[in-house]
Every structure is written in structure tokens, then in C-alpha cells.
């Protein structure tokens, strides 16, 4: 990982520091965009776009990085994925493949109308995320646990608490 002095040298505009940075992280960026774009020229163009973002406006984006808050490789991966998703949005028509739409959203038989009075904080963000992953992404408990970096029992317990809240809410609504 690049240390603080290397990053300082890079941001101050030292060509050697930039070259070392490119050599060290180009492979990581290539791996980060993999899966979002086709491998080959498209992925390589995206890596170039990430490097452009990092150094444009006198390294404005790179200067926002803080080694005390996250590792450089983690941050670069997130930046690269975000750049790739932006590029996807620019180049693709605004449509969604039918296979990507959760089956529940395609259902047309449910005509139940909910009142528009939802308690905002009924479910915590983590509870919403866990239920989204379980019921919309069809992930199993082990997968959700791995994605969130927690143990499976935490996922089960989060699910259980969320369902208790939902049952209580809809029971009170008369459903």
C-alpha cells in the first residue's frame, strides 16, 4: 500500500510517484471494474477514466482520501466501481432487463392499496437491507452474512426483529 509520504509526493506532482502509483494500482482497478463491463478494451478505458478522475483538477479527488478512515485499495475499488457504474448509465438506454427485475415487482394481481402513512423509522436501514437481500435478491442467510461482514445468527436475528415490527405494523393497520 502507498504510504503517506508516497501520496504526498504524488499529489505534489512528482512524475516518478505517479508512475509508481499507476504501476501498483492499475491491476487492482482492472479487477475492480471486472464484471461491470466487458473485459478488454472497455475495461482498460474505464481504468484510464479512473486515473483521469484521480488526477484531474490538480488531484482533487485523490486529495479527499484519508488513510485514517480507510485503506487506499478499498477506497480505490469503491471509486473504480462508482466510475464504472456512471459509465454504464451514460452508455446504456434507461431500461432494465426483465431478468433483473425482482419477480415480486412484476406481479400484477396484488391490488391491495396501502395508506401512505408509513412510520419512517419502523425498520432500521440494516433491517431493510437484510430483507431486501433475502427477498428481492434471493440471497441465503450465509450470503447475506458474508456481504455484510457479520455472522449468520446476526442476520437471522435482524430478520426476526424486522418481521416482528412488520407484523405489528400491519396488524395495527387492520391487515
Amino acid at each position: 500500500m502507498a504510504d503517506g509520504s508516497e501520496l504526498k509526493a504524488l499529489i505534489s506532482g512528482q512524475k516518478g510517484a505517479w508512475d509508481a502509483f499507476v504501476r501498483r494500482y492499475a491491476g487492482l482497478l482492472l479487477s475492480a471494474v471486472r464484471g461491470l463491463v466487458r473485459e478488454g478494451a472497455e475495461a482498460e478505458d474505464l481504468v484510464q477514466e479512473v486515473f483521469v478522475r484521480l488526477c484531474k483538477d490538480d488531484f482533487r479527488l485523490l486529495k479527499t482520501y484519508d488513510a485514517n478512515r480507510a485503506g487506499l485499495s478499498t477506497w480505490l475499488t469503491i471509486v473504480a466501481r462508482s466510475t464504472a457504474r456512471d459509465a454504464q448509465r451514460r452508455h446504456r438506454p434507461p431500461s432494465t432487463a426483465i431478468d433483473d427485475v425482482p419477480e415480486m415487482l412484476l406481479a400484477v394481481t396484488d391490488v391491495h392499496h396501502e395508506p401512505l402513512k408509513l412510520p419512517k423509522d419502523l425498520l432500521s436501514p440494516r433491517q431493510q437491507l437484510v430483507l431486501t437481500l433475502l427477498y428481492e435478491k434471493d440471497m441465503d442467510v450465509a450470503d447475506v452474512a458474508k456481504s455484510l461482514g457479520v455472522d449468520p445468527q446476526t442476520v437471522r436475528s435482524t430478520h426476526h426483529k424486522a418481521m416482528l415490527k412488520l407484523r405489528a405494523h400491519f396488524a395495527a393497520e387492520g391487515g
Partner: peptide
């Protein structure tokens, strides 16, 4: 979440 997962994996 896939971004987060990949970042963790690469790290």
C-alpha cells in the same frame, strides 16, 4: 453491496 464485497475481497 457487490462493490463493498469486492472491495473487502481485494483488500
Amino acid at each position: 453491496l457487490e462493490d463493498v464485497r469486492l472491495a473487502r475481497e481485494l483488500r
